[in-house]
Nucleic acid binder design. Sequence first.
DNA 1: CTCCTTGCAAAGCCTTTGCACGCTG
DNA 2: CAGCGTGCAAAGGCTTTGCAAGGAG
Lengths: 142, 142
Amino acid sequence: MNNNQTFLDKLRQRGYRITPQREMIVNAIAHSDRHMTAEGIFDAIHPRSKALNLTTIYRTLDLLVDVGLVSRADLGNGRTMYTSDQHGPHLHLVCRQCGCVTDAGPTLLAAIDDQLQASFGFDADLQHVCISGLCKFCQTPS
Amino acid sequence: MNNNQTFLDKLRQRGYRITPQREMIVNAIAHSDRHMTAEGIFDAIHPRSKALNLTTIYRTLDLLVDVGLVSRADLGNGRTMYTSDQHGPHLHLVCRQCGCVTDAGPTLLAAIDDQLQASFGFDADLQHVCISGLCKFCQTPS
DNA sequence: CTCCTTGCAAAGCCTTTGCACGCTG
DNA sequence: CAGCGTGCAAAGGCTTTGCAAGGAG
């Protein structure tokens, strides 16, 4: 679980400075299996340390995305979700009812990708996409 | 090309009033094969008639979505796209480079839907989703 | 000591809401 | 004539930007 080191090393390599804030943010992302929004990261850190600002989180996330350690995915609702790329590429299935996020793994991803590629020659950024719908548990007959 | 009538009739049926603004908006959507944003509709109409406000467009679009004549799809960038449901369900493939929007038709849609359903029991709102990537023409070897 | 980073505040962007006037039916 | 629909202005939520102070290397 020393993803943090990996992350920090890569940042150092690229000549970025390692600050407490960046460490905290990287930590939050690397330790979490979850997908996080900027605000989620803020909420995770703020209780323990107040030396962190939302602005900084956004800037650091942009930086991590540039470096290629994290990928950005658009939730439909105007928010943006960030995920460590350590987990490999995956598609996000967001339940419109309960808000849960299911990851569709490489297999399904590849299948869909193939179809988009074959039918339209379209090279999709599937890791960056969230598909909304109803998860297994919310498909109530009501 | 009298989709407008269909649209307006349905609105009347539901007890909504037909106003010049609603006619213009419905016209813009029905006559266009394109996917439109609220602002796009505004820009299409404003040159000819100034009797229209962005607020009204948003309210009318909400209404059309409620009635089921139009569907809402999330572009990744915080904007929302609206499409006449006359064209049937389709998935939007948005090129991150040239911005073009390709529609993936029912076949592909069904295939993807099946896979999400089979693998995760996830009932996707595929018509509401835009997948970003590179279109056929932008996949340059650079 | 240099200058990359941070925090604060304010702006930006798209969308929504409140309220009084006006027009549809 | 009743009440829905409109425009205007302002707020709202998330994200970005400007600028001076602060910390990393």
